[in-house]
Design a protein around this nucleic acid. Structure first.
Lengths: 338, 338
DNA sequence: ATGAAAGCGCTAACAC
DNA sequence: GTGTTAGCGCTTTCAT
């Protein structure tokens, strides 16, 4: 019974013949068209089931010129902030008749662009990029006119909308919070220079300047492991510790807390720590990490909405939606916090 | 210059005309065929770039009858064990010329099957299911012969391979560990009855029986929130606490630890806790959760390998690869652990 | 090495 | 309602 793999599959033609109708009619039935007689519909469905027919969506998409599919590209599956965004996106497109296909960029310049091009080559109706790290030029070239919305970053590209939380403001909020707690030696662990996400750092620098404080910057890579490594190196260096550290994101902050914990240093007693994103684990009573809520779920929802509006033509050019970050105070900076 | 969206895109025909060659030749150039003269190749590439040509992969896949694409379905993006599997899968297919397209099932019976059918309808060469929760029958029907490998579960379906860690053994390991630590009142927080993942529970029950201990079972839903809710409810009930709890997975275990922490109960002092999966955060010094390593990355790698072998035809029927779980002792069960 | 012709499996008018 | 006729944009023999 077992056919050799890739044996010619059952086509609409086969179903049509079996049901004694035309191919077009089968097509209508498959697309649940209302203008098909119940009798014929039943016959077609019956034949399709009997023959084990599986519609070839490559063919239907090619012929119909639309895919009803949104490509969604994530930077990193290990950061749950993207899981939150995913949830928001699916909520946002629910009931729109669209579906998503997701890919992961992995912060690798090549992988990211390949995935993006793949979406375009597969003719996704639109693309949502959650954490794009490439350049505006590459993005524009890869898109070739495909509508796109970038989450967490402001892009000055034609036809590309941006949905993000005010990162500069987040940096300011962080410093204001720590300064208000009495800290003066406030360090910032940010990310590699080549990455385009610099606004949090800018905000930090701006606020430090405002307060007349000396900035302390260290680079890391947005991961837990990276944050931990950076803090371990710092501790090993014997340099004077800051009294507070603001990390680029929660993962990094957690890594920092780990390094401190291993060294037997108290948080916030010896060093206060805070992150940014407000991922699920930051709120855990076991961690209690002060953070800045980026509203990841909402970002996803809004991004989806912006995309749908754009596809419906009811949107002008290059929208930018910016949400207000919200400080979430927890034990890692303030012992009196819940 | 800007065309209206969805304007007829540049086709191979256009490029061919512009370059003064045949469509077939352009096709060869696009597929990097060696048998094209350098001159013509340059001309084609030049025209393609000038016209902003973007190959339509729907068409090429339709015509060539292969997609070189593996569909990967994940149960839950919030559980980082799937991120680990994803990494393993990409490692596994690296260099094979294949790519992945991912979808998320969300433990919803419908969503999961839709995503799966979509892979099939899009003619993925194969499908990898990480955390499939549906029935064998539905799986077989949806696949329609598409090769598949299921991770974390043993499936008795024709043409479907299984790659998993011995869950029964994991359950036994957990009980043995806790029993060895002197615990006798050992509870197990497992998952909903309708879910197909019962082997860990079976292992737990078996081992409890072996030791002549009374099993204590509570259902939850595999999430942190769920574990926390269940534990809070239990605490509120005033029932006598077990001295140790083995949770179905790490997320659940962490939720349990949170509920205990909020209640001011010490882990493992008042209650020892352990999970299963050994996700990244379990190993964090901030959490120190005893767990059972499922080798998620390895599972992904092996699954990819099995899939590739299958596609290359070098594999027999229905392989099952089962890995040995490994106990990772940490503070949540043993204070003397690192 | 290159071109011509015949599909791939479906949808989209347009007739009837 | 249902069938007919053209494609969609590409890959594939098969010539040359």
């Amino acid at each position: 019974m077992k056919q050799t793999p890739l044996a010619r599959s059952v086509t609409m033609e086969d179903v049509a013949r079996d049901a004694g109708v035309s191919r077009a009619l089968v097509s209508l039935v498959m697309r649940e068209s209302p203008k098909v007689s119940p009798a014929k519909r039943a016959a077609v469905l019956q034949s399709a089931a009997a023959l084990g027919y599986s519609p070839n969506r490559l063919a239907s998409r090619l012929a119909s010129h639309r895919t009803n599919t949104l490509g969604v590209l994530f930077l990193d599956l290990h950061n749950s902030v993207f899981a939150d965004m995913y949830d928001g996106i699916t909520e946002g497109i629910a009931g729109s008749g669209n579906q998503v296909m997701v890919a992961v960029g992995s912060a690798d310049p090549g992988t990211e662009l390949d995935a993006l091009k793949n979406f375009v080559d597969l003719r996704a109706d639109g693309v949502i990029l959650a954490g794009y790290t490439g350049s505006a030029g590459e993005l524009e070239a890869a898109l070739r006119g495909t509508p796109a919305v970038v989450i967490t970053r402001e892009m000055e590209v034609d036809g590309v909308a941006s949905v993000l939380t005010d990162d500069f403001r987040s940096g300011v909020l962080a410093v204001e919070h720590l300064h208000g707690l009495g800290h003066r030696r406030i360090a910032h662990v940010d990310i590699s220079d080549w990455l385009p996400y610099t606004a949090r750092r800018e905000g930090y620098l701006h606020a430090m300047r405002q307060f007349g404080l000396e900035p302390m910057l260290v680079h890391s890579d947005m991961t837990e492991r990276g944050g931990r490594a950076v803090m371990e190196a710092f501790l090993a260096s014997g340099a004077t510790l800051p009294t507070a550290i603001f990390a680029h994101n929660d993962l990094t902050a957690i890594g920092i807390m780990e390094a401190l914990a291993i060294r037997g240093l108290a948080v916030p007693g010896d060093v206060a720590v805070m992150g940014c994103d407000n991922i699920e684990v930051a709120a855990s009573p076991l961690i209690g990490l002060t953070s800045i809520d980026q509203h990841a779920g909402e970002l996803g929802r809004v991004a989806a909405q912006v995309m749908l509006d754009r596809l419906a033509g009811s949107a002008g050019p290059a929208v930018t939606r910016k949400l207000e970050p919200v400080l979430m105070v927890r034990r890692s900076s303030d012992p009196s916090a819940v």
